[in-house]
Amino acid sequence: MIKQLARALLVGAALAVASLAGAQDWPDRPLKLVVPYTAGGQFDVVARMVAERMQRTLGQPVVVENKPGGATLLGADYVAKSKPDGYTLFYAGANAFAIAPHLFAKVPFQRGDFETISLVSELPMGLVVSGQLPVRTLEEFVAYAKANPGKVNFGTSGSGGAQHLLCELVKDRAGIDMVHVGYKGTSQVLQDLLPGRVSAACDGLLAYAPHAKAGAVRILAVSSAKRLPALPDVPTFAEKGLPDATVASWGGIMVPAGVPAPVRARLVEAVTAAASAPEVQQRIASDAAVPRTTTPEEFDAVIRADHEKWGDVIRKLGLAGSK
């Protein structure tokens, strides 16, 4: 018995030493950062900035790989099933961890399949309408939709995500009838929004801001608690009498559960350094988002709070388990 115990302790110690040695050599090859959205959208742009800065800290390239689809569940599932060696990272948002567990009858992974690294930004969203639509304010949009029931549609980058739920909230609270059209990503939404094939969109605002300046689209309201410095003339939903639409998504980096503690610690250091760089924070703010870094524990708390908040929204809308 004593010999068996001693042997088990020796094996455990050997494994710990091997793990530590491997962690000291890490990284010795490029890392992969999986983004569950198409290229060019707000998540993708910020992820690429952070990936480039992480390379400076880690000494290895961090390659962004886009895996859109399934309200971000496809990308999340891919990472959940990846080897927990610190070489595969996930640029996570609220959709996979705070929304999907309530909205979908079955999700192919568990929250426990992931460990947090750090938040990068909070992502307020907005209601954007085509310049072809004869409205300039949220009040005019609501009046137009009520006068044309069932004829107004809205596009989002996927069914069941935060963007979709924001428009459903507006639809419910304003008492209007709109038809949802799901797309793979923001660029596809814009392709139909600009010529007016879809009337409106709920989304992060990075890709829409240049078109708003050109008059091709109009941003009617934002979902943040306060007006965004990058869009000072755009009112909040709360200002317009829709306080329930004060919601936000977020972007942050996670890894498959089981990554060795020393490797996870180095990732925390690299991500927070990258996301805290002045040029990155300035770019995030200029893109109508809010820069924010956290400890893993703080990130965990954000997920728990948003899981409860979005669950309440989904239940009130009668959408629980509807997908």
Rank of each mutant, 00 (worst) to 15 (best):
T236K: 13
Y144N: 06
A248Y: 08
A147W: 08
L74N: 14
Q188N: 09
Q188H: 11
E65N: 11
Q163D: 14
F109L: 09
H211C: 01
P149S: 09
V129A: 11
G321V: 07
V107W: 12
P278Y: 08
G204R: 03
G69M: 00
A162Q: 09
H102N: 14
A105F: 04
V271H: 01
Y208G: 07
R266G: 12
A200P: 07
I284K: 05
A16Y: 05
V79I: 03
P235A: 12
Q55C: 08
G185Q: 04
G22R: 14
D177I: 07
A21F: 07
T137S: 14
L206E: 13
L206W: 10
K83I: 09
P291R: 10
A277P: 03
E298G: 08
R29A: 15
V35N: 12
L242V: 11
I303P: 00
H102W: 15
K240N: 15
G185E: 11
V179C: 05
A8Y: 12
V271R: 01
T72S: 13
T294A: 00
Q60V: 15
H211M: 05
A301V: 01
P30E: 13
A21V: 13
S19V: 13
L138R: 08
S130K: 05
P124N: 06
R7Y: 10
V11T: 14
R266K: 15
Q4C: 06
A96K: 08
N148Y: 08
P278I: 03
N153T: 11
C167Y: 03
D113G: 06
G215Y: 10
V135F: 06
